[in-house]
């Protein structure tokens, strides 16, 4: 890892710096007002490094002890990472050792998007560049979460409704993907199956049936959807 690689990666990560400071701050504040010491968000930001499930973990930490459910729900919510990994098989191929392990460990939505779409500038090793992107993103997230955890306690404004930041974030991620993709059948499948399972199974039990349902419908409709891709 060189200073040159960090310098080259930094401009690509500026939007993430702003986003992660804001989201991390929000998450740290949420942890703080939920009664946790400041180093909890720091530790979670360092070890989990997956924004959406960290927000969910706040609820799980306030509920009765059930690590298996937390484990399974995290698998469900983060299942999309499996598909980032599939897309990165090629790009991470040449990277070896600890750097490779760290790249895979730190593959959040944002690190994935940059490393999937950006090529390292001339004269900078590809592996070093991607590692620098990931390290920068990771440190923004830890910094934001820690600041929120510390300053949440001196907060004097009413934070009711702040948790909506998570919904808003998913809406934006969805919209970005929606604007990028021409064939949007899978969006409708996602909404319809989720809504149907929510009504059928209830708010606490609908995620796993929904995942199975989405996989099933996508598999059944593989022919027509692939045909639309090609046209």
């Amino acid at each position: 890892m060189t200073a040159k690689a960090i310098k080259a990666a930094f401009p690509h990560t500026v939007p993430i710096l702003a986003g992660f400071l804001f989201l991390g701050l929000t998450y740290g504040i949420l942890m703080n007002v939920s009664g946790f010491p400041w180093y909890y968000p720091t530790i979670m930001a360092l070890t989990i490094f997956a924004g959406s499930v960290e927000f969910l973990t706040v609820n799980w930490l306030l509920s009765p002890f059930n690590p298996l459910q937390a484990f399974l729900l995290t698998l469900m919510v983060n299942a999309r990472h499996i598909f980032y990994g599939i897309s990165m098989l090629d790009r991470y191929k040449e990277v070896k050792g600890l750097k490779r392990l760290y790249l895979i460990f730190g593959m959040c939505d944002e690190s994935f998007s940059i490393n999937y779409t950006t090529d390292a500038p001339e004269g900078i090793d590809k592996g070093d560049f991607m590692t620098a992107v990931t390290i920068l993103n990771h440190s923004y997230w830890v910094a934001g979460s820690t600041l929120g955890g510390i300053f949440g306690s001196v907060l004097t404004f009413n934070t009711r409704g702040l948790e909506f930041v998570l919904t808003s974030m998913f809406v934006v991620i969805f919209l970005e993907q929606w604007l990028k993709q021409r064939n949007r059948s899978s969006a409708w499948i996602g909404f319809l199956v989720s809504a149907a399972c929510l009504v059928l199974f209830g708010a606490d039990k609908f995620i796993i049936p929904t995942m199975i349902g989405i996989l099933g419908v996508l598999t059944l409709l593989r022919e027509p959807i692939s045909r639309r891709d090609a046209s």
Partner: peptide, 16 residues
């Protein structure tokens, strides 16, 4: 094929 189409379904699920 799944890698291409699952993300949009998953983000829809996350909103729900």
């Amino acid at each position: 094929y799944l890698g291409k189409h699952l993300p949009l379904s998953v983000f829809a699920l996350l909103i729900v």
